[in-house]
């Protein structure tokens, strides 16, 4: 299983770091890409991740109102909802895309959510719909 996580520099990346520092275990399938803000996560990256064989994609950012850049996560939420609805419409398994608010102090929440997301992806199995197959 491959789970690509876009984590914002200010909250979620620090949250994931805290999970590591506190020696909480979360699935090793999670691969974190640090971005400066969840608002800069282009829907194209998410689709490209699925194309390259990711089984799940998580966007994580600061809680609404806590964004380092004031409104970045509002944009993230908009893009996420639009992409999710569109994926559902074309029949893609939209459960594979998840949005998670995690602040720098929520290492435990980050680890738990990643655990439950991994379980969900395991139930769904490998992502075959967009994966590159020769």
């Amino acid at each position: 299983m491959k789970i690509v996580t876009f984590a914002c520099n200010w909250c979620s990346y620090a949250g994931a770091d805290l999970a590591g520092v506190s020696r909480l275990k979360y699935p090793e399938d999670v691969r974190i890409v640090r971005v400066m803000c969840s608002g800069m996560v282009n829907p194209a990256w998410i689709l490209r991740a699925f194309r390259q064989g990711a089984d799940g994609v998580v966007i994580t950012g600061c809680h609404p109102g806590d964004c380092h850049y004031m409104v970045g996560n509002y944009y993230a939420k908009k893009r996420y909802l639009l992409l999710k609805e569109l994926m559902k419409f074309v029949g893609f398994e939209d459960e594979r895309l998840k949005l998670l608010w995690a602040s720098a102090s929520e290492g435990k929440k980050f680890a738990e959510e990643m655990d439950s997301f991994k379980k969900l992806i395991e139930q769904l199995g490998e992502q075959k719909q967009l994966r590159w197959t020769p």
Binding site: P43, A44, L47, R48, R51, R79, L82, L83, L86, M87, V90, L130
Partner: peptide, 11 residues
């Protein structure tokens, strides 16, 4: 790839 193109175009 066409699916991705059209989803992005529409988004």
């Amino acid at each position: 790839d066409n699916t991705i193109y059209h989803l992005l175009r529409v988004l």
